[in-house]
Structures are given as C-alpha cells and as structure tokens.
Write a protein that binds this DNA or RNA. Sequence first.
DNA 1: GCACTAATAAAACAAACGTTCAATTAATTC
DNA 2: GAATTAATTGAACGTTTGTTTTATTAGTGC
Lengths: 216, 216
Amino acid sequence: MARTTGSDGEKTEATIREAAVNLIARLGYEAMSMRQLASEVGVQAAALYRYFPTKEELLFTLMREHMEGLTEAWEAARPVSADPVQRLSAYVENHIAFHIERRHATHVSNMELRSLSPERLTQILRMRTAYEKELRAILRDGAETGVFSIDDTGLTAMALIQMMTGVIVWFRPGERLSIAEVTTTYLSMTMRLVGAKIDAYSAARPFGRAKDAVAF
Amino acid sequence: MARTTGSDGEKTEATIREAAVNLIARLGYEAMSMRQLASEVGVQAAALYRYFPTKEELLFTLMREHMEGLTEAWEAARPVSADPVQRLSAYVENHIAFHIERRHATHVSNMELRSLSPERLTQILRMRTAYEKELRAILRDGAETGVFSIDDTGLTAMALIQMMTGVIVWFRPGERLSIAEVTTTYLSMTMRLVGAKIDAYSAARPFGRAKDAVAF
DNA sequence: GCACTAATAAAACAAACGTTCAATTAATTC
DNA sequence: GAATTAATTGAACGTTTGTTTTATTAGTGC
C-alpha cells in the first residue's frame, strides 16, 4: 500500500498538530512515541516525517505558534487607554480566556521547555519574557501614578502570572464555575493584590472578552 | 569485579535518592535513564535495583516522602491560635520556606505526576488534597468571622497555592532577593488578596520561620 | 581464618525508540 | 491517457531503554 484515497497534506498536518498537542499534554513529550502519535492520526509513523523533520521540531513548532497566538491575542485586546486599571483588567481577562481556551497547548508550552535544544529554548523564552514585560510595565505605571500600591513590581508580576496560569491546572469547562465567573473572581483578586484604589471589582459585573472590557 | 571497597548500602541509597531528585528535576523522569542515574551515583545500573525494584517505584518514593515532609513541616509550624490571620501567615511562611528549600523535589512532585500508575497517583493526590484542605479551612474561618473578604474559598485557595508554589520557578538562592524578603512580600500580597482587615503587612517586619511567627 | 551475608559488576535480554529508505499508489497536469 | 507530483506504506536500521541473571568480591561474626 502507499498513498491512500482522499489523502490531503494540509488536513494531515493539521490533524498531526492537534493530536500532538493532546498527546503531549496528556503523556508528556518524552513519553509520547512517534508511533503512538501516528496511530492517533491514523497513519504510519514514517508519514509524520513528511511534515516535521524531527520530533523536537514538532514540539518547537507547537510551542512557537502557541506563544505567537498569545502575543497576537494580547495585541488585539490591549486597550488604547493609558489607565493602569483598565490595562490590567484587559491583561488579566485576555490571559485567562486564552489559557482556558488552549489549556492543552499551554500545558505543553509550560511543561516541556526542557526538551528543547538551547537555541530553541532561548527563542521561546524570549517570546515569553516579552509578553511578561507588558504586565510589568502596567504594574510600574500604576505604582508610579499611585493607582496601585506594590512592593516589588517584578515579583508581583511573577506572582500574578503564576496565579492566573494556574487556572489550567484545576479548571474543567462545564463544571462548577463558568469562564465568566472565574475571570470575575480572578480580576477581583488581582485588583486587591496590587492594592488598586478603586475597588469595585468584588461586586459581580458584566463579563466581556478582553477587547470589550475597555469601557467600565 | 563485584563489591567495591568502602561500599555501604545506606550511603548508596541516600546518594541514589539525592541524585535522582536532581536528575529528574533537570531532565524529567522519562528523559532520565537508569544508566545515567547510576553513573551519577558512581555505580552500575544493576546496583540501583538493590534499592528500588523499578524506576517508577523510585519516583513514587521520592514523591511520597516529599509530601510527607510537607505535611510534617506544616504540623510543626501550625500555630495553636485560632486567629485566621496568624494561621494564614504561618501557612504562607511554611509553604514558601519549604518549597524554596526543596525546589528540586517540589519540581518533581508537581511535574511528574503523570508518570505514576493510577493507584500511586491517587495516593499522592490524596496527600496533596489534605494539605490544601488546611488552607481552605483557614480561609473559610476567616471569611465567616469577617476577618477576610473572599468571593470563593476554593478558588482563592487554588490561586494562593499556585502563586506561592510558583516561587520555585524563578527563585534562585543568592540572587537579588533573600528568602526573607520574598516571604515578606508574598505575605503582604496574600493578606491583600484575601482582603485581610488588619493591613500592617506591607511594612517590613522581622522575619521568622513559621513556628516563630505565632506572636505578632 | 572460615562461613556467611551484603554490595556490586558485567553481560545479556527483549522491547521500544527515532528515523531512513525504497516501493507504491492517488491525484494532478498537460 | 501518459507523465509528473503528492502522500503514504512497510520494512529495516542502529541505539537505547528498563530490567534480570550470574558471578565475584568486601565486610562481618565467630
């Protein structure tokens, strides 16, 4: 046997990507074999090498595209306003929405960094640092203008990111809480954590995706 | 060749444990080979099987003992006081001190859960849940007595634990911040996050290990 | 110093790994 | 409908994996 009827390169590649994210998230990169991935896709292992030259290149591609997606999502959601409270709200809402939507991909990007070669690791970390820098800038602006009260900007940024990203560990869609409820609570916790002066965040308020949350 | 001069079972086992924690933290459980571990210990791979029947049993032992250590540390640090603020302070201080001290072991316990068999996974998760339950109880008591203002106890507990445990990701001993400084800042952030009424935590205050922090 | 046990080495096992290669068939082009 | 290109199979490669078996030596008790 050889080429199968109805076979299409683009579709196969997309299927590989999807299956790889799920499999790596579940088993881990090292524990997932190429044969396992191939069988999930419904293809022989050799066929995978038409699309990705090595296993590591596949992992790297998944990570890079995930980080690019996160950056792009934030660029689309970033408010024009200079108000630190609004900007922080948008950051939190975007971060949580994105990470819940792509739980598996986030898991891969966070857990499998050590399987990358040094150069590729550096590349991913650079993207991540750039994204985190945005948060630090917001916190610094808020602290300087007196809207926030923060001890250590860098440390607070790390704490917030760990807290927000941690959502993917326990959140399961369709359980006790909706995405909207989780986001509202995290927004409230974030604002208290940074000592935001205006504290109207504990009360329930209409939920919107980051880009809609500019005006409030 | 066979038994080497000066060989001692207890010492070898301790060396294996230590090397395994470091190696698994650095490379990951799946990526670490038994031969690699053996060479780190200065022994042949077969010798490892005198101490641990399988690779997974080794991993499980490391994790179980780490969780037991965490539980014991908290039991020793838990204040007699019923005051939620004091109890929460002790919890945060103990958690951060323990996790920084045993960064590598924590990394292993958090990242390699998926390599355990279902029964062993359940056992570890049970220990973890019991530990987290302590935090939820503190938050609930504080919320009920009006000392804290919390939206969702369970969600807040998860957020706090993610935030605190996240320290091990970026903290490197001997860099910009001392353990005491980090703990102070995290304590301040925690108290603001739960909306603690008495907010004297932003100011610098003498640092003490959990068990010494009862009176303040 | 002899018997016994503890601790290890050395070699081997089958299974699984990532990857390559040649052959083969489906779709597309002209 | 012949020639070309795209997509895939099946078999094979050399390594590495966790683990077992057997033999050998160091330490210990008497």
